[in-house]
């Protein structure tokens, strides 16, 4: 009897890119549910728009590059990028802002650098930064959480959808009247006005650990992230060391001067810290590979997040910290190679 020839190993591989990406999407579900619970259905709209644009942009680029559509579209990597971008957008974001960001991520940040696996910078964070500097007003117009009563009427489902596609709010409503500064923003401004944290945290936007709503999105992100850890999709070094870097730096500063800085617990649960630790910094393509390299990378991101939040020009620093550390990945990889068996 004759048989086909094939290379070892003769065993079905243990996983696939598609399964990894699908698991990332699944792990985002709890955080997405928390997001919708606190900020309304905006995230869902944003995910749908971002996902559609991402697939279209991915297909167009694959076609231009002469690559097969099926395996690459079905690897879900474009969808993961789209969903991550959607998480960075305020619930009320005009569709074209979303589309611009996603197109930039897929076309420029991903495919112009060589496509899947080749991009030096995290595409979702690149898109977020591009949108933040291009459309700062849209990108910072956050709705307050639904269950906070600060005299702001939340747009309902229909109103939100109408705004997304027309950019117009129902009669009598203005963007300024329905949005509020994010807790990180508030904290920052009030610290600048010489208020200390114990006064700030009594504000209506604050919950148990950090900003109302935000803290829960963070906690649910962490739950999803733990599941990814358990499934072996991500490794523990980057999230742990990023959170440690942030926590320790914040703790040191707070101990030095409790009046001028916020406690480290707030930093951990505020903004995108937990979300970024598990879903952004762990992007395999742009992060170092060796365990030691990942620890250094994570810790540096954590420290940078604190630095940018405290002394930088933007309220949150996860995106900038990650992009900055992306640049150092080849260097870290080069200097943290483990010693090979039998070699000195």
């Amino acid at each position: 009897m004759k048989f086909e020839s094939q290379f070892a190993p003769h065993i079905t591989p243990s996983g696939s890119v598609r399964r990894m990406m699908q698991r990332v999407l699944k792990a985002l579900v709890p955080a997405a549910m928390a997001h919708v619970y606190f900020f309304g259905p905006g995230l869902i709209f944003n995910i749908v728009i971002a996902g559609g644009v991402a697939l279209a942009a991915e297909a167009a680029m694959l076609r231009l590059r002469g690559l097969p559509l099926r395996p690459y579209l079905l690897d879900f990597s474009a969808l993961v990028t789209a969903v991550l971008i959607a998480f960075t957008l305020p619930p009320l974001t005009p569709w074209w802002v979303t589309a611009t960001g996603v197109t930039f991520a897929i076309v420029i940040a991903k495919h112009l650098y060589g496509g899947l696996g080749q991009n030096p910078f995290n595409p979702a964070m690149t898109a977020y930064v591009v949108l933040l500097v291009s459309f700062p007003v849209y990108m910072t117009s956050w709705l307050p959480p639904l269950n906070v009563d600060i005299g702001i009427a939340h747009p309902d489902f229909g109103d939100s959808l109408f705004y997304l596609f027309t950019g117009r709010l129902p009669a009598g409503q203005m963007m300024d009247t329905i949005t509020a500064a994010s807790p990180l923003d508030v904290t920052r401004n009030q610290l600048a006005q010489a208020m200390n944290y114990s006064e700030i945290k009594n504000g209506p936007l604050f919950g148990n650990f950090a900003g109302k709503g935000w803290e829960w999105i963070g906690i649910y992100s962490a739950l999803g992230g733990m599941w990814l850890l358990y499934k072996g999709v991500i490794r523990w070094q980057i999230p742990t060391f990023m959170l440690l870097g942030l926590f320790v730096t914040a703790a040191v500063m707070y101990l030095l001067n409790p009046g001028a800085y916020v406690p480290s617990g707030f930093h951990l649960f505020a903004g995108a810290a937990l979300f970024g630790a598990f879903f952004i910094a762990t992007d395999p393509v742009t992060a170092p590979i060796s365990p030691l390299g990942q620890k250094i990378y994570g810790a540096c991101i954590g420290i940078l997040v604190y630095v940018i939040r405290t002394w930088g020009g933007f309220p949150d620093g996860v995106a900038f910290a990650v992009l900055f550390m992306n640049m150092t990945t080849p260097l870290i990889d080069h200097y943290t190679r483990p010693r090979v068996y039998g070699h000195d």
Partner: peptide
């Protein structure tokens, strides 16, 4: 037992191989 004819995707640097 075998699923070898699969399409080869680009390396995504996940580092599982190094692990």
């Amino acid at each position: 037992e075998l699923e070898q004819t699969d399409f080869v995707m680009p390396c995504i640097r996940c580092g599982k191989c190094a692990q």
